[in-house]
Design a protein around this nucleic acid. Structure first.
Lengths: 317, 317
DNA sequence: TAAAAATACTCCATAGGTATTTTAT
DNA sequence: ATAAAATACCTATGGAGTATTTTTA
């Protein structure tokens, strides 16, 4: 029988396709890794890699086995996590992924207090588009992901956290400036500045436009909410900003005005996701409770399991 | 990090709750296993077992981790199987489970020829009720199960093989003896001898009774089809027998008559099941094709994946 | 010739064994 | 007193290292 170590080498080599770099990643010497891979191939009685003239490539069978090896290592890591989580809850590394349009404006409210409450916790936060975050979560590279819906959460589990209103941002002096509440038809004909493709928020805003008769401002696409705000301040046009961003960054900007919509407000739903096999669900739920207890104004807390939440495209594997 | 060997010891000890027997099962000495379990506990930083006064018991956390360890070992075994299956297809051990009312009457047609075609295959056949077979399949103790529906196949995958007609068996001279085809109402008021609880066939026959106005013969429950046939021969009453049993065992019995039903014939559906993670699906499909090519008369071949087959209660995990 | 993988060898950590002690019924 | 687990100690396998050779672009 092979060992978990063999599987680790296999995965490292299948990732890097270089004995040298795989050995580095595993913190062993290149000959060690060479020998162990050869030994694994001998044990299994099959060829996993083709080493041909300066090129290392996976055989189809090697690819399949490397994929399964990843699963075995992930499950082993889960066992370690479960043990550590039981002996010292909320200690050790916790890898949290969050979308870029939310993290910097929500987490400051929460993380410093959370770290204080759990000093042994080492919290790694990573920003990425929602789709990539859930992929990384499935791969086991993340423990936890905070994303906005809709996103394909097949094979994942989680909680709905809150709904964040979307507000209109216009330059000072804009015809809509001064309105207390926007109605369904206030946006008709407006050209809205938007984020570039890949952001979930863009999708949400496009849907909003559709319903309210507005359209995308062609020719400009922003890469961040800050850019978007500066474009509004430069009087290029109005845009839609999420409430937490406005509260954190744009509330005292005297060049733009932000206006809420009348009910039913457009909003985006923010959820917290983890793998169902994860060993640290209790910790994740505590983290969720921590967030919910410290939610800034303007957002509407929710707190129900995602299993029972009707999300199109959700289906167990 | 622990090793797969540690996990094997953990699973063995959690199964036996005795260091001595667990060591035996692992083919190591008792001190070796003692030391390794202690080491695993030290590595994980938690207590897995309570050793108290002649009693070894799992802690709750130990139970959870042992369960996960089983999964890791199963996945590792799958990798081994995949490799062996690729290098020498249809070689090595193949553990097949089959229900008792089918195995002895179908497999003789198939197995000797299958063994001849694949001499390196070591085929272990085990008989059990369908429910236990699918449980063993999920545990990884079986590679393949041949059962009749309905059975809960959640989390499993497979093929529908064939539909086997159910025939009425009556003592010679019974009023129904001599009829060519039974109609829907032929059985009205009849008291049918049945198998004891737990057999899928019993369930199928009960459903049949319901539809045809017959009832169960109270006071007698047989434990095998052979017993059932002898009871019919002893003129205790009529019964329902599956066609393959009749063809194999009861065709030349001059004390009983077997009579088929008019269309739509009552029948039971026989399926072949495996774990979706199994490494040997190709071999299983070949086995299925082998069976289908050698099906005895009277049964109706089917051959479609079970995923698309509407079976109540089927739901992915 | 330079860079990468394979080979040769040496060493040591550790899993495994046997013998023995401890503990609990 | 007996049976089971723990401890002590020794052995040997194999995983890891360094040094070197082979291979190919």
């Amino acid at each position: 029988m092979f060992t978990l170590r063999h599987l680790g080498y296999l995965v490292a080599l299948s990732d890097t396709l270089s004995f040298r770099r795989a050995a580095e990643r595993c913190h062993v010497s290149q000959p060690t890794l060479s020998v162990q891979i050869r030994e694994l191939e001998a044990h299994l009685g099959i060829q996993l890699f083709e080493r041909t003239r300066r090129r290392v490539t996976l055989t189809p069978l090697g690819r399949e086995i490397a994929e399964r090896a990843r699963g075995v290592l992930r499950a082993s890591q889960d066992i370690m996590d479960l043990a550590r989580s039981a002996s010292r809850p909320l200690a050790g590394p916790l890898r949290l992924g969050v979308i870029a349009t939310l993290g910097p404006y929500l987490l400051p409210y929460v993380l410093s207090a959370f770290r204080e409450a759990h000093p042994d916790l080492r919290l790694y936060v990573r920003e990425d588009p929602a789709r990539r975050l859930v992929d990384r979560l499935r791969e086991g590279e993340l423990d936890l992901a905070m994303v906005d819906m809709p996103v394909d959460i097949e094979g994942l589990e989680g909680l709905s956290l809150f709904r964040e209103p979307l507000w209109l941002a216009v330059p000072r002096g804009h015809p809509l400036d001064g309105q207390r509440r926007l109605t369904h038809s206030s946006l008709r004909g407006l050209e809205l500045l938007m984020l570039e493709d890949g952001h979930c928020l863009r999708t949400a805003v496009l849907k909003l436009c559709d319903g309210m008769g507005a359209r995308e401002h062609t020719g400009f696409q922003a890469t961040s909410l800050d850019t978007l705000r500066q474009m509004v301040a430069s009087r290029i046009g109005p845009t839609i900003l999420p409430a937490l961003y406005v509260a954190a960054e744009a509330a005292d900007d005297d060049q733009i005005s932000t206006i809420a919509f009348a009910d039913p407000q457009p909003e985006r739903q923010v959820v917290l996701l983890w793998r169902p096999q994860s060993a640290r669900k209790d910790e994740f739920r505590e983290f969720a409770a921590f967030i919910l207890a410290r939610l800034p104004a303007h957002v509407t807390a929710e707190n129900h399991p995602l299993e029972n939440h009707p999300i199109p495209g959700q289906r167990p594997p």
